Simulated scan of single mutants.
Amino acid sequence: MTAVEFHPLTFVDEPDGVVVGRSDTQSYAVLPDDGAALLRRLASGMTLEEAAQWYHTEFGESVDMTDFLDTLRELGFVREGTDDPARLPPLRLPPLRLRRLGAWAFSPAAWAGYAALVTACLVMLVTHPGVRPHTDNVFFSPSLVVVQVSLALAQVPAVSWHEFFHVLAGRRLGVPTRLSMSRRLYFLVVETDLDGLYGVPRRKRYVPFLAGMLADVLLFSALTLLAGSGPSWAAGPALAVAYTILFRLVWQFYLFLRTDLYYVFTTLLGCSALHDATSAYLRTKLSRLPGVRPPDLDESAWSPRERLMAPWFALVTVCGVGFLLATAALAVVPLLWGFATRLGPQLAHGTAGGAGFWDAIVSLALFFTDFALLVVVSRREAARRGTHSRSKETTP
């Protein structure tokens, strides 16, 4: 009789199967109901022979236990060296830090505090029109360089605050969420790894997904209150940063970009790869157009639920692009206009030795440097993707 030792596994029922995984390594797989049931028997201590007999009795079919076990080993579910489980050292998982802080951050007392802060912000917005979001709030200093550099530096702690709330919301559930640095185009960004949420029931995933937006609302509220009742020197920078936070909140509604709300949406629908399924669906429908490459996988590669929802999410994607263009026209264009109307007079009427003239020159140089880097990095990314796709096509 051969028994196999497994790492601690989570089993979560989903509409298209059972998500089985290891939270410590965040390795997850969707197994059919019968495969998950078989794995449960093995993890409970059944030998391979007993589990194979149970499967045959329960489902009326034979199972290749060797192939099944090889798959489980590839997923990292099997503890290595389990030919003799008695010789394995006891399994000890490292303690999860910040779990107590996460529990406190989402306790009833904390929610009451959050509600009080947001309510005070709403009262401030109603009673003090000067603190309401407006494009002019961004230009809190006559120096455009000061504005650009200050807002760029403020984004690092603001985004970290957003992601830190994701971490705390996951840690309170015992999920080893963690922060990491990555790159979007040429920007360094902070991201939270939330794959561990696949190991908890769907109803418990919503707060971790929405925690970042909660953090943004709290920060916006605190900055608004600071501008309205704090020292006068802090009002301008506070309102400028608060305005950028609104951009980040609006960004979350671009579901087709896989934002926080996208994961809330797909969790409600019971899908795990709706974006990829929709992309394949759209490319299949548009493959007759010039320049549109058909998808590498056909629609049969996705679950029945994702194939059902892909046409509807394609409509959401089209509407989302329209919403992005509309918000750009209402928010980004006024910002660029405000920048131009402040930059132009300094260049036209300033003197070569004046502070305003050189502030405008440096500000313009920063703007075009950002734009040039954007173009260069975008082309490199496109070239890299093109090289990768060609190598896949030529691989035997």
Rank of each mutant, 00 (worst) to 15 (best):
L153H: 06
A154D: 08
Q155E: 12
V156L: 15
A158E: 02
V159S: 01
W161Y: 14
W161N: 03
H162N: 01
E163C: 11
H166K: 06
H166C: 00
V167H: 05
V167M: 05
V167Y: 04
L168I: 02
A169Y: 06
L173Y: 04
V175E: 03
P176T: 05
L179E: 02
S180G: 12
S182M: 13
R184V: 05
F187K: 11
V190K: 08
E191S: 09
E191H: 07
E191I: 06
D193T: 00
L194F: 08
D195I: 05
L197N: 04
G199Q: 01
V200T: 09
R202H: 11
K204H: 11
Y206N: 06
F209P: 02
F209G: 07
A211G: 00
M213I: 08
L218W: 00
L219M: 05
F220A: 01
L223T: 04
L223K: 13
L225I: 11
L225G: 07
L226M: 11
G228N: 07
G228S: 09
S229V: 13
G230I: 15
G230P: 09
P231T: 14
P231E: 15
P231D: 15
S232R: 12
S232D: 14
A234E: 11
A234D: 04
A234Y: 05
A235K: 09
G236W: 08
P237D: 10
A238M: 14
A238V: 05
I245Y: 04
L246K: 02
L246F: 04
L246N: 10
L246C: 07
R248P: 06
L249V: 11
V250I: 13
F253L: 08
F253P: 03
F253V: 14
L255D: 12
L257M: 13
L257R: 14
D260K: 04
D260Q: 07
L261F: 14
Y263Q: 01
F265A: 11
F265V: 03
F265Y: 15
T266V: 13
T267N: 13
G270L: 07
G270V: 11
S272N: 06
